[in-house]
Design a protein around this nucleic acid. Structure first.
Length: 1069
RNA sequence: GCCUGAGUGGCGGAAUUGGUAGACGCGCACGACUCAAAAUCGUGUGUCGCAAGACGUGCCGGUUCGAUUCCGGCCUCAGGUACCA
């Protein structure tokens, strides 16, 4: 033994790392009598840049917890693996011609080497890689479970699709409305179901499946002939080459996560995530309560003016020919078997009894309605109890029917049977009000969702999303050119661009007007990029006095602003208050806004032009990627209809190829492998692959039983390990990975594979270690780069550049040219003969090319120092810049700790003397604080506490085994190599991992007196020592009598004396 | 823009429930050891001020005997914003 030197550290760390490996010290068994503890890190994407100093931050924290829980007597599961599919490997393959499987395996080796050098206690026998066929076999298997399931809204859980089919065969879809309200068939009977051919049946089932095919947007780059990830698009142009990128629709897989919105929301109440994390997820799910309101359009401009050929009266076709053909048989069937309520009502309204002709079971759009008066454009629906569970579908159905110009009023079976008179009265009132036909041309109706129905009289304009289907229909010929121009502009804009544009207000008038149903006011209809098609109904009512964006819009386009909140609106800026008393609001005048919300909704429902609505902002998850390096979809298309592959045929392995170029037509590289894609006549595979979220959505289950080849994990293992007790990772995964993982676990739970339905009991968000990035500036549309100081003279897009080819701020131009093939022919605009880069402090990430590697630190200080230094940097949950300047202090501490045990020659030098009270106090204070800090994930303060402890024991010259030995166990989770070595020197034969954490004895910590700060008016002026059990009166007397206090009171009696035992004395003058 | 988080000495940060602001470490200064340097050890170190003292936790305001901590309004930076992972 010698001193704690660089050479000695290396020897110790190598020795124990091989000891742990050879003796399999951290191999975890599934069968044990000990309580279990599952501590998990978010697994890394093995990038080519290797491990950077940000990665270990979380891993060190979990390793401390894992090692601590072991010495506390738990059976600890602490695994690690790799999120090994992903875009960067494929980009690397395109640029360097290396197969992603090869570069990924190489990167994993590098990662593993780096991880091993830090001394983690992972059970490597449980490692998983998402790109391994024996792993993704089960990812595909779970995908098939999603494909083969639907969400039963009555039971609020996923069920096998076979249960749904059984139901369809018995009673059609009466009980289970189509989740996709835009689907062409919304209602069918058992007989019809049986009559549909297989293709039709499958098409219908697709509308229910949890994994389903639909047309969704992608970033299409025509010049590159490929779909781009959002990351590859900068300011609407491609990262590679700077070509224009537009939105394009493609048929892709989606997961119906929206069905789980409510359960994902409610589940948050049961799990220990930070409030901010829960808030992020709540906001992402975005539940809002409000109302749908239907606005009719004015006859100005009339349909003729808009170029329509039919007159209003000619417009008697209520469904297109195709729908009509499909629906008329069904309608006839229904007429033969009316419900009791339907029949009752029919007898009262048939033969023009109410003065207008009604038809029953009539096709409108793609639906069959119960009753309709075509002349007055009025639909009457009589609902059975099932409608309680399909409010959303009914609302959407009404909306579609409303697009055809029809109003809907609804009655329940009960109302019709028990209050027939009242029902008839309501119908009469509806018939006497002008029909939408009379109110507007062609019956076009705009439906908006608003959380503020109380502001209905403040509506000064309407705004549609540019993608809204009505835009085509209602644009007047005079506005057409402007609208087309605006649409072209919007197509080039990303969603973030559209939402974040605040200075520039953009929009375009359609030429059409809507009518406010409450006061018949005509308001202009605009389109603007700030309204997104995917949110709500894709249309809003503009209330400038109450909404800031609406206000800016109105000011910019000079739209008159109606004030409905009196003095709360100052004419300068909108006021979104709920507190105002309404003015200019007809029947609401004098009503508080809060109270008006309910009143308006009631009125809307009464008038049949709107209803209460719960809306979710969350959308279904796009699950297809036009990429090679991901899980292939385990389906076969026969005649374009997808069929699940047999479980026994899984995994569907990714075919080997050396061609990763996109197909050029929008499909992924797999489309080029025609032998693989085309199975036989009319049989094809999917050319897309799954996103990386797929493999990450369930990997924590696989760790429980990683080598099982007959199940994704055995039920016994799943039941034993259960939820992850603590999960550590970055908050950047808040809404993607964490929501998808929660979804998959809920589905597996619903289908009976798990007995828990939340994967992570507790989540800690580790802060990022920030890096210092560098940028180059590409002149838009060129391959020319301009130095940072001159960039404002050009229209540029900033691109990250590898910090390793920048010296300070100066770019190494030659290195840059060879860095990526795209830049080989780059030209440069220099300043003072140099190319200077821009900079920014942001998260350390391979995609920002700003990563710093931990190997150098280990080389000069050792892993124990690195581990403790990363913890010492600051709170785990906060982000902090990487800076090694303080690392010496941690190293010195470890040396000091080592020296406590050793003499000058490096020989173990301890005595068996009885410890003093003072020494015992130091020991137990430390033990207690460390335990508390680990429980609170406050590792920086525990490192400080160890330093204080070592300083105190050094100054006490303590060399006593009974004091120092327990500290080795306490420190071992933090500095395992050093502690193993000392532990062995102390004569132990087993790893310190098998020791028990010493018991904290409170009796050594009891204090009898306290040094009180004596403050005057809240400012500390003196300190006085009193026994903790001294009566208040005595304390007060002594304090007031003291010289310092006398000086301040100048003999006057104080107003008040506050004494908080054990804390403070405050004298108020 | 929206959602979330952060802001305390020259630097990383501490202050557990509203009770001594700056623990611990780095850096810096001075001293000891040394021919000298490094290493090590010791002392000091928020700002202003000779001092008494005043000021001080991003900014402005409030509640309180007392606010880094609670409330209201702002500013700056970071993460996410649905195909980076």
């Amino acid at each position: 033994m010698t001193e704690y030197s660089k050479e000695e550290i290396k020897r110790i760390e190598d020795k124990w790392q091989s000891y742990w490996r050879e003796k399999q010290v951290f191999k975890t068994e599934n069968n044990t009598s000990k309580p279990k503890y599952y501590v998990l890190d978010m697994f890394p994407y093995p990038s080519g840049a290797g491990l950077h100093v940000g990665h270990p931050l979380g891993y060190i924290a979990t390793d401390i917890v894992a090692r601590f829980k072991r010495v506390k007597g738990f059976n600890v599961l602490h695994p690690m693996g790799y999120d090994a599919f992903g875009l960067p490997a494929e980009q690397y393959a395109l640029e360097h011609g290396v197969h992603p499987a090869i570069s990924t395996a190489k990167n994993i080796d590098t990662f593993r080497n780096q991880l091993d050098r830090i001394g983690f206690s992972f059970d490597w026998s449980r490692e998983v890689r998402t790109c391994d066929p024996s792993y993704y076999k089960w990812t595909q298997w779970i995908f098939l479970k999603l494909f083969d399931s639907w969400f039963n809204r009555v039971t609020q859980k996923a069920e096998p699709i076979s249960a749904l089919i059984a139901n369809f065969e018995k009673e059609g879809n009466a009980k289970y409305a189509v989740p996709n309200s835009k689907f062409e068939i919304q209602n069918f009977s058992a007989a019809e179901w049986k009559n549909f051919d297989e293709k039709k049946q499958r098409e219908i089932l697709m509308q229910y499946r949890l994994a389903y095919l639909a047309y969704t947007d992608v970033n299409w780059c025509e010049a590159l002939g490929t779909v781009l990830a959002n990351d590859e698009v900068i300011n609407g142009v491609s990262y590679r080459g700077g070509y224009p990128v537009v939105k394009r629709q493609m048929r892709q897989w989606s997961l119906r996560i929206t069905e789980y919105a409510e359960r994902l929301l409610k589940g948050l109440d049961e799990i220990d995530f930070s409030e901010s994390m829960k808030e992020i997820q709540r906001n992402w799910i975005g539940r809002s309560e409000g109302a749908l309101i239907h606005f009719s359009l004015t006859p100005n401009p009339s349909p003729k003016e808009r170029g329509a050929s039919e007159t209003i009266q000619d417009h008697v076709f209520t469904a297109d020919k195709r729908s009509w053909e499909e629906l008329k048989e069904h309608a006839r069937e229904n007429r033969k078997a009316p419900t009791e309520a339907e029949d009752t009502l029919w007898q009262e309204i048939r033969n023009g009894k109410l003065g207008h002709k009604f038809r029953r079971q009539h096709a409108i759009a793609q639906f069959i309605v119960d009753f309709v008066c075509i002349e007055k454009k009025l639909v009457v629906e009589v609902d059975g109890p099932i409608h309680e569970f399909q409010k959303r579908e009914d609302a959407e159905r009404e909306q579609i029917i409303a697009h055809e110009g029809f109003r809907t009023i609804r009655f329940s079976n009960n109302e019709v049977l028990n209050n027939t008179k009242g029902v008839l009265n309501k119908i009469k009132i509806e018939l006497s009000s002008p029909s939408p036909m009379e109110r507007g041309p062609g019956g076009e109706v705009i439906t908006v969702f608003t959380t503020r129905p109380d502001t209905i009289f403040g509506v000064d304009f309407m705004v549609l999303a540019p993608e809204h289907p009505l835009v085509k229909k209602i644009t007047s010929p005079t506005q057409q050119a402007d609208i087309d121009k605006y649409l072209a502009y919007v197509e080039s804009r990303s969603e973030v661009d559209r939402m974040s544009e605040v200075k520039k207000v953009t929009g375009c008038f359609t030429g059409a007007y809507a009518i406010n149903p409450f006061n018949n006011r005509e308001v202009p209809i605009w389109i603007s990029e700030y309204v997104l098609a995917g949110y709500g109904t894709g249309a809003i009512m503009g209330v400038p006095c109450g909404d800031e964006r609406d206000h800016r819009f109105a000011k910019h386009f000079d739209i008159n602003i109606t004030n409905i909140i009196g003095e709360h609106y100052n004419g300068e800026e909108a006021n979104p208050t709920y507190e105002a008393t309404l003015t200019n609001s007809d029947f609401l005048n004098g009503t508080k806004m809060k109270d008006a919300i309910g009143k308006v909704i009631a009125k809307l429902e009464e008038m049949g032009i709107g209803e209460r609505q719960v809306n979710y902002k969350m959308r279904d998850a796009g699950w297809s990627r036009q990429r090679y390096w991901g899980e292939p979809f385990p389906v076969v298309f026969r005649d374009d209809v997808p069929y699940a592959m047999a479980e026994s045929d899984l995994p569907l392995e990714l075919p080997d190829t050396n061609e990763f170029k996109p197909s050029g037509n929008g499909e992924g590289p797999l489309a080029n492998l025609t032998d693989w894609i085309n199975i036989g006549p009319g049989e094809k595979r999917d050319s897309n692959t799954m996103p990386t979220h797929a493999g990450a959505a369930w990997y924590f289950l696989r760790y429980m039983d990683p080598h099982n080849d007959s199940e994704f994990a055995s039920r016994k293992a799943l039941d034993y390990w259960n939820q992850v007790d603590v999960y550590v990772g970055g908050s950047e995964h808040a809404v993607a990975h964490l929501l998808y993982a929660r979804l998959w676990i809920k589905v597996l739970h619903d289908l009976g594979y798990l007995n828990f339905d939340e994967p992570f009991k507790k989540l800690i968000n580790q802060g990022k270690i920030t890096g210092d990035s560098r940028f180059v500036y590409r002149v838009r549309g060129t391959n020319k780069f301009v130095s940072a100081g001159l960039k404002d003279k050009y229209d540029t897009d900033p691109l990250h550049v590898d910090v390793n080819i920048v010296n300070g701020f100066e770019l190494d131009i030659d290195a840059f040219k060879t860095w990526k093939p795209d830049f080989a022919n780059a030209e440069f605009i220099l300043e003072d003969g140099k190319y200077l880069c821009g900079s920014a402090i942001e998260k350390m990430s391979k995609s920002y090319f700003n990563v710093i590697n931990p190997d150098k630190i280990i080389e000069s200080y050792g892993a124990d120092t690195l581990r403790m230094y990363e913890m010492f940097l600051g709170p785990l949950e906060q982000s902090k810049p990487w800076n090694t300047s303080g690392i010496d202090g941690v190293y010195k501490f470890l040396r000091r700790f080592w020296n406590l045990f050793h003499d000058q020659q490096g020989k173990l030098d301890l005595s068996d003397d009885q410890p003093s009270d003072q020494e015992l106090k130091v020991l137990h204070k430390t033990l207690k604080k460390i335990e508390q800090d680990i429980d609170n994930f406050s590792f920086n303060t525990s490192v400080s506490e160890f330093m204080i402890c070592a300083n105190e024991l050094t100054s006490l010259k303590c060399k006593k085994r009974s004091v120092l030995e327990p500290l080795v166990i306490a420190l071992s989770p933090f500095a395992p190599h050093l502690c193993e070595e000392i532990w062995e020197e102390l004569g132990h034969k087993e790893s310190v991992s098998f020791a028990s954490y010493p018991k904290v004895e409170e009796k050594y910590l009891v204090e009898s007196s306290f040094e009180y700060p004596i403050s005057i008016n809240g400012k500390v002026r003196a300190k006085m020592n009193f026994a903790l059990d001294m009566p208040r009166e005595d304390v007060q007397k002594l304090v007031l009598a003291s010289e310092v206090v006398q000086k301040w009171t100048e003999g006057k009696a104080p107003k008040k004396v506050i004494i908080v035992p054990g804390k403070i004395v405050n004298v108020v003058l």
